[in-house]
Amino acid sequence: MTAAIRALPATARSMVWAPFTVASGSVVSLVVAQRPWEGQQLSLGLARLTLVLVAIGTALALDDAAADTLACSPTSLLWRRAVRLALAAGAAAAVTVVALFAVGATGGTGGVPLDRLVVEGAGILLLAMALSTAVGSDRGAFLFAVGLLGAVIIQQRWPAWSLFPMAPGAPGWSRAALVWGVVATVSAGALFVISRDPCLRRRVMA
């Protein structure tokens, strides 16, 4: 644990924060543009778009150019990656929760169930991070974005498969939250498994 804490500042310095910063800027812009303090209601579509952008920014921040060099260090891959994931996920969660809190505090949610939106956000974020960790940040972000956009397109034609209920009062929020909860759990499990040292992974498989 001490090693992980000691690694925090150095890891944070080595991470690519520019995409995440831009995505966070878009969250702030969204909150400001929506003007919830004037009674404007939150746009669900825009909120989701920024959520996805934050997830992609976070996924790209996980890019670990020094992974091969550090593979022989005494710290395990799990620890090294946990530090990186904790930093990225913590920052993304902080930005998202602060933005949602700001919107909720001004009463501008427009009836959007924020708790379910948070579950959806957690699922989206963890999925992006899992894909990014599994196949590389750049390719992972690509697969993630394509998959998510595909899901949106599909639900336009087949609303019964809706992962993103289109309006606050629309049916399907509970089921969508359940699906996103499962996605979040599976993604977190996948993150744990693929972050174990390769030799340990092989032992488990055997």
């Binding site: 520019a18 995409p19 831009v22 878009s26 778009l49 920024t50 996805v52 952008l53 992609i56 920014g57 790209l60 940040s137 750049d138 972000a141 974005a145």
Partner: peptide, 11 residues
């Protein structure tokens, strides 16, 4: 050429 650019453009 940064990897985030096309996603930002799509956004």
């Amino acid at each position: 050429p940064q990897p985030f650019t096309p996603y930002l453009a799509c956004f």
